[in-house]
Nucleic acid binder design. Structure first.
Lengths: 141, 141
DNA sequence: GTCAATGCAAATCCTTTGCAACTAA
DNA sequence: TTAGTTGCAAAGGATTTGCATTGAC
C-alpha cells in the first residue's frame, strides 16, 4: 500500500486529504513492518507536525479501519496496536514480542479451518492466526 | 478443570479459598463453554453473592491468569473476556460472534508454525489460532 | 495471630464525544 | 460554499490502586 493508493480510496469515500492525515499515513506507510499504538504514532507524527492531537490520530485510525485499510491488534496489556493492511493476498503475521516488528506469514489452512468450524456447527466468519516470537535482532542482543 | 483441581493449585500457591472466590470459580466452571467479561461474571456471581464487588472479580481473574488457569481474550470492542483454561491437551477455540459460545478445536499445526517463524528469523514463543463464526443455535434463530 | 482477601472510593489509563473554529475541494 | 476535519476540554468506560476492615487457615 502506498500513499497514492490510500489517497484514492479515501477520496472515493469523501475523505479529505489534510496535512494531519498525510503525516499519519506517512508514518503508517513507513512502519508497515511494525505495530504502532495510537500514542506511539502520535509521538512520531509530532516530530513533523507538533500541534497534532491524539484525538485526530484516533479518528484517523478509526476511519482507516472502517475502510479496511488498517489491521487492528488488541492486546492483553490493554493497548491496541495498528498497522496498515497489505493490499495483496490473504496472510497472517508473526510479531516480535520485544520490539513489535511484524512479518508476513504466507500460510493459511483456510479450508481446514472452515471445515473444522463446520464440524462444530459453526459458520466461519473470521479467523485469526497470530504468531509471536523474538526476532533475530532482539534475540542476539 | 473442576473445583478440586483448581482449589489445590490455589492452595499450593498460598491463596485462600474465600466464599467470593468459590462463587467466582463456580461460575467460571459452569461456563467453560463461554467467554465472560468481568462485568458479566460479576452479574452472575451477584445472583448468589449480592455483595461481591467488581474489584474482587478483577483481582481473582488476575490471579487465575497468573497461575495460567485462565485464558484471556482481549477484543476490538475494548472488553476483555475470559474462560478457564482446559487442563488437557493443547488446543484452540472457535467463538460464536453472536452469543459468545466457545468450542474447542483440536487442531494445531505447531511444527509448521514453528518452522514458518524460523524462516523469518523468529523464535516462536506463543501463537494464537482463533476461529470466529455463528453457531448453529444463533444461525437458525 | 498472621497474612491474604475484600469492599469501597478514588484514581488511572485508553479512548470517545461535544463543540466551535478551520480547511480541503 | 459546504462538508468533512481538527483541537481542546470534558466525558466515558474498563481496569487498577490505596486503605481500612474482614476472614481463612
Amino acid at each position: 500500500m502506498d500513499f497514492q493508493q490510500i489517497k484514492t480510496i479515501l477520496q472515493n469515500n469523501n475523505f479529505k486529504i489534510t496535512k494531519q492525515r498525510e503525516y499519519i499515513l506517512d508514518v503508517l506507510i513507513n512502519n508497515q513492518h511494525t505495530l504502532l499504538s495510537a500514542e506511539t504514532l502520535l509521538t512520531i507524527v509530532k516530530e513533523k507536525f507538533p500541534t497534532i492531537n491524539l484525538t485526530t490520530v484516533y479518528r484517523n485510525l478509526d476511519q482507516l479501519s472502517v475502510l479496511s485499510l488498517l489491521a487492528v491488534f488488541p492486546s492483553d496489556d490493554g493497548i491496541t496496536r495498528y498497522k496498515l493492511t497489505c493490499a495483496d493476498h490473504h496472510h497472517h503475521h508473526i510479531i516480535c514480542q520485544r520490539c513489535g516488528k511484524v512479518e508476513m506469514i504466507n500460510y493459511c489452512p483456510l479450508d481446514t479451518l472452515t471445515s473444522l468450524a463446520l464440524d462444530k456447527g459453526f459458520h466461519l466468519t473470521k479467523h485469526k492466526i497470530e504468531l509471536y516470537g523474538i526476532c533475530e535482532a532482539c534475540y542476539t542482543e
